[in-house]
Simulated assay, not measured.
Amino acid sequence: MAKKICPDDRWSWVEVDLSALRRNTTAFKRSLARGVRMMCVVKAGAYGHGAVRCVNAMHTAGADQFAVATVEEGLELRRAGVQWPILILSQPPIESVQTLVENDIMPCVYEPDFALALGEAAAAAGRVAKYHLIVDTGMTRIGVMPADAVELRRTIDFHRGIECAGTLTHFATADVPDDWDFALQLNRFRNTVSALRDAGLNPGLVHCDNTPGTVLHPECQFDMCRVGIGLYGLQPAETTVGVIDLEPVMSVRGRVTRVVYPEVGAGVGYGMTYRVPKRNVQIATVPIGYADGLSRTLSNNMDVIVNGQRQRQVGNICMDQFMFAVDVNTTRTYCPTPEVREGDVVTVIGADGDERITADEMARLRGTINYEVVCGFGMRLPKVYV
């Protein structure tokens, strides 16, 4: 099957399992209290999985709204015919207000000048632009300070061209059990929402739970939860493992473009950081490199799966290709290692037979998180939906 779905123009690709994506979305939707809406985060091309196809699959599984990071990401969805609510999880440049109004894309707001410019653009078009007020409760990234939230709303609410559709904050430590900083952020957020209501100001949809918050803190689901990395079958933290069952959605595969038996001592790749140690060692090439998301820091330190067996990557990973070694031994009865041939499918992330390489395994080798791993693979590799 892998050979059949391989793109015609390049022997490397990202496989996206839409059925697994729908099952993950359904699992999160079922975890919410009755009436709580679900906003699915599809920024960075749905974390490398392809935003448009993922949005459609998520909506069929219960998604109510969608969140992106940039104006262009929102426009991509609108151009593809997506009509459901879209929120930008930041306050974009003031120059973008006309585009936001024309395409019915909601921004986050935390500065009055931006909010009033948005209102002017909407009023000129005979429309009302919706926005979400974002509150900085302690992450120190973006948002209005809690003490200033009521004043900001009073400053901008006179404008007939804007309407507050939601109030949110973002947790820094929702994945840490019994964390003091999380409790402090939540308390500040609750107090801010209460202050808005006491002042006669409608906060709209109140939301603060991100993926780990949705899993670990059902007590603060409020009106909506924002679910991101978990939709793609990846746990946001070790503390959520076992609390919700998820299925990986992404696999990364390529096909062997060249196989040789080099002489003993032959170097492999830039800098020749690997040399062939003995006879009967194959060196195979796959057209995936660091420009495709396979970090160069993994050089000589990762496995791939071929014909159901793990093999070692060797040599420095190149921009567009990498190599791996196969110690050919067909005489062992307990675990023979057959020759690799041109066209054989190589799994970089995913399953083949009884072996599996996960984004978490690769993240540990890189000293990073699974979010970065999958986002990287989604930038250039063609996507195949299965």
Rank of each mutant, 00 (worst) to 15 (best):
K4W: 11
P7H: 14
D9K: 15
W11V: 06
R23M: 09
T26S: 10
G48S: 13
H49V: 01
V52P: 11
C54R: 08
Q65C: 13
V71D: 02
G74T: 04
E76G: 12
L77E: 03
V82T: 07
T99K: 05
M106Q: 13
P112S: 12
P112F: 01
P112M: 02
A115H: 07
A115D: 05
L118N: 04
E120C: 07
A121Y: 03
A125T: 06
A125W: 08
V128E: 10
D136Y: 04
M139R: 13
T140G: 04
I142R: 07
A147V: 13
G166Y: 06
T169K: 06
H170R: 05
T173M: 12
D175V: 00
D175S: 10
P177F: 05
A183Q: 11
L186P: 00
L186K: 11
N187G: 12
F189V: 06
V193F: 08
L196M: 07
N202E: 14
T211E: 05
T214I: 00
F222N: 04
M224V: 08
R226P: 02
V227T: 04
G230Q: 06
G233P: 01
Q235C: 09
Q235A: 06
A237W: 00
T240P: 07
M250S: 10
M250A: 13
R258M: 09
Y261P: 05
G265N: 09
V268E: 06
P277I: 03
R279G: 13
P287R: 07
P287M: 11
N300H: 12
G308L: 09
Q313D: 01
G315I: 01
N316E: 15
C318F: 15
D320I: 09
F322P: 00
A325V: 01
P336V: 03
G343Y: 12
V345G: 01
R356C: 06
D360M: 05
V373N: 00
R380M: 15
R380V: 09
R380L: 14
P382E: 10
